[in-house]
Structures are given as structure tokens and as C-alpha cells.
Design a protein around this nucleic acid. Structure first.
Lengths: 151, 151
DNA sequence: TTTCGTGCAAACCTTTTGCAAAGCC
DNA sequence: GGCTTTGCAAAAGGTTTGCACGAAA
């Protein structure tokens, strides 16, 4: 008997499949509501909130209900497949994780650009020596205006 | 007629006076409830939440009520006198601002260490050229374990 | 005196939870 | 079949707001 994910594999966006596979690999079931949430996330234009996902899904009459969206977002975030974006005000937006990357967030429209160089290792090591903290992770984001909003 | 702030100036912590003066300079009244909130913030051991401030003030029977604490924290944050600290989960803690500094947050107990070097100007300029964004600010924090929690 | 801030309680939103029914493997 | 997940509705937090009263300059 084949799984839901295998049945739909060919008709789904590869980015959706990639997330679903990793969810499956970590022992979680790939259900229709979860696939719908992943599709909504992959199709979001930038960082998305739970409300954004619900809105997108509502329009397609595929919304599994807000509680399930919250549960799925939390699960995927815990698995590292979604990543939280911190805005100056708003800290409850997410993106589909793309490994260790950092983001520039447009203060006006929320558009994102990403980059991977962060050159913080050396600084982190220096800080470990001077403060005695053991550093496990970091948060680096830039805020500003995207090209479209500058015009 | 002398202001509340002037009357109490000598008996207050200089750090409280510094914040109150800047609040006054920007045209906001320095009232007893606001002074109490500033005192609570200055006396907090690390980053504080609104609930922390309320608790501290409650113990001294000086709490102006949660709504006023929220309003004061928001005002001081808008004025740049308080600064928001972003944790991995919790994004609603604040510190009394100390200019442009960055923080290392202990994932276990919330202790902070700060530093000022961030060497991000060059990276920011490179990113502006490559992405077309205009960068206005940044967020940089490290997370880990403080010396006490490592033991 | 006039304006700004306070305090209470109610409203609001977002997020979580309990639980019976349904779905996945 | 056994275990996980869902969906609803209700609860729980946390934050904001309306408005009459009080305080600051």
C-alpha cells in the first residue's frame, strides 16, 4: 500500500516534496492537511505568518483549521524545516528553511533577500574567550527597504 | 514649581535619572508610575518582560497596573531607551538601552553579556550592492550558555 | 487650566488544549 | 489494529483600548 506522499509525488512542487520527505524521515506522518500547509508555505511570496497560511488555504477551501496549521508550523519549526524570522515588531513569521542562511527583511513590504556569508565564527570565538559563554547559535538579520519599495 | 523628577533626583539611582531625563527631554511627563517602571527595569537582573516588571512592582506595592506598564514599556522602547531582546522562542523581553550594543543570551537562565564590536558595516555594504536593498538596521545576537550554567 | 497620563475592566487576538472522530501505515 | 493526527470549540494568555478620573507643568 502506497503512502499519500508517494501517490502525489509527481504532481507536487519539488520543494514541497523535499520538506515532506524530511518530515516523513523523522517519523511523522505526511497527511493531507500537512501537505496543504507545506504547499501554502512554499507558495508564500516571502516570510509568512500562520494567518497568511490560513488565508491562502481558505481561498482554496483547503484550510484544515487554524489549530492544525499552528500544530504543523510548530512541528516543522521544531524539525528545522521552517525557520523563524524576527522582525523589528513582528516575530511570528516563518520561512521554509534553506540551511544556514541569513535574511534582509524589507521594513515596508516584508520582502526577503538572503545571504550565507556571515563571518561570525571568529567574532564568536573571541566572545567565548572574553565572556566565558559557550555560544551555540546566532541570529543575524538586516532590515531596510527592498529595491521595489525604494522607488 | 519643581518637577517630580527634580524633587527625587538625589534619591534615585543615576541610571533611573538618565532614562527619566531623556524621557522628559522628548516631551513626555515623568510621573510616579513611569518612574516606578524605570526603577523596576534598572533593577532587573537581566532582560525583563512586562510580567517581570509587574511582579517586582507588586512586591513593593507600587505596581501601577499592567496596562500602564505596557504603555510605559512601549513608550520607552519607541524612544529608544529600552531595547527589545529576541530569544529563540521568547521575543518579548527588554533591556535598558545602552547605545548600539549586541547581546549573548543564555539559553538556560537568560543571563546576558554584551559587546559592541560587530564589524557588519562592510558586509552590509556588500549586501546593498548585491541585493539592491537599502539597509537601515540590523539584529545580531548570540545564544548559548553562560559560565554559571555550563558548570 | 489645560493637557497628558492613569487605572480599571472589558475587548481583542493569537495560540494552546481536550477530546471524540477520522486517517495513516 | 494500533497509534497518530484532525477538527472543533472552548480556554488560556498576553496585549490593547475606552473612558472617567487624577496629576503634572
Amino acid at each position: 500500500m502506497s503512502s499519500l506522499l508517494d501517490n502525489q509525488r509527481d504532481s507536487l512542487d519539488p520543494a514541497v516534496v523535499a520538506v515532506a520527505d524530511r518530515m516523513s524521515d523523522s517519523g511523522h506522518k505526511v497527511t493531507r492537511p500537512r501537505l496543504a500547509v507545506i504547499e501554502a508555505a512554499v507558495n508564500a511570496p516571502g516570510a509568512f505568518s500562520v494567518a497568511d497560511l490560513e488565508h491562502w488555504l481558505d481561498q482554496r477551501a483547503e484550510s484544515p483549521g487554524i489549530a492544525s496549521i499552528f500544530r504543523t508550523v510548530r512541528l516543522l519549526t521544531d524539525l528545522g524545516l521552517f525557520q523563524r524570522i524576527h522582525g523589528a515588531e513582528e516575530c511570528h513569521r516563518y520561512i521554509v528553511s534553506q540551511g544556514h542562511r541569513h535574511y534582509i527583511v524589507c521594513n515596508n513590504c516584508g520582502a526577503l533577500a538572503s545571504f550565507d556569508e556571515c563571518e561570525l565564527r571568529e567574532l564568536a570565538e573571541r566572545l567565548e574567550r572574553s565572556t566565558g559563554f559557550h555560544i551555540e547559535s546566532h541570529l543575524l538579520e538586516f532590515f531596510g527597504r527592498c529595491p521595489r519599495c525604494i522607488e
